[in-house]
Amino acid sequence: MRLDLSHIQRWIAPGSRVLDLGCGDGVFLEFLRDQRQVRGTGLEIDQKYITAAIARGLNVIEQNMDEGLSNFPDQSFDTVVLALALQAVRYPERVLDEMLRIGREGIVTFPNFGHWRCRLMLGLQGHMPVSSFMPYTWYNTPNIHFCTVKDFEDLCVAKDIRIVSREVVGETRDKPLLSNTWPNLFASTAIYRITR
């Protein structure tokens, strides 16, 4: 399982209702269903992923979250997950609001643009960062709203969003100490559990 997902699954209560925004091929919802008896719904726009998620026996809805989530009633899910998709949505701020309207809790994971490698590429080489983790170049990337750990936490303060927990994933060779102590510099992926 992808590293950010293996972190967040611990925050999901057995038997709860989970909405996964950008559920991909449904591997995470399948895990939650089989291991946690979670009643899950996935949202996805990629046709191949939709078929794959259906084949896993999941409930998946073809819907573009950039066009809104108003069809989901208030507080109709226990947890709303947005895993590695915040940077790709058109209105991240609105999506966060919607997540916390629809769910009791939200879980957000995103690539940290403040990571030292990003800073190195931009600061010293003068190029937009491209890495195995963020493999796109600026003109073809689906990622249109990069932020850093600090940026995200500032936004949460501004929007009265309470951070329940934060986890960070560093590079595999990193000691977790580095990314835990200086997350804005050493976290490659940031993972937040938020509520209002």
């Binding site: 409930n59 809805i61 073809e62 009633p73």
Partner: peptide, 11 residues
Amino acid sequence: IAAERPVTYAE
């Protein structure tokens, strides 16, 4: 969705 029934949708 509002009735909390399991639903899958493809367009």
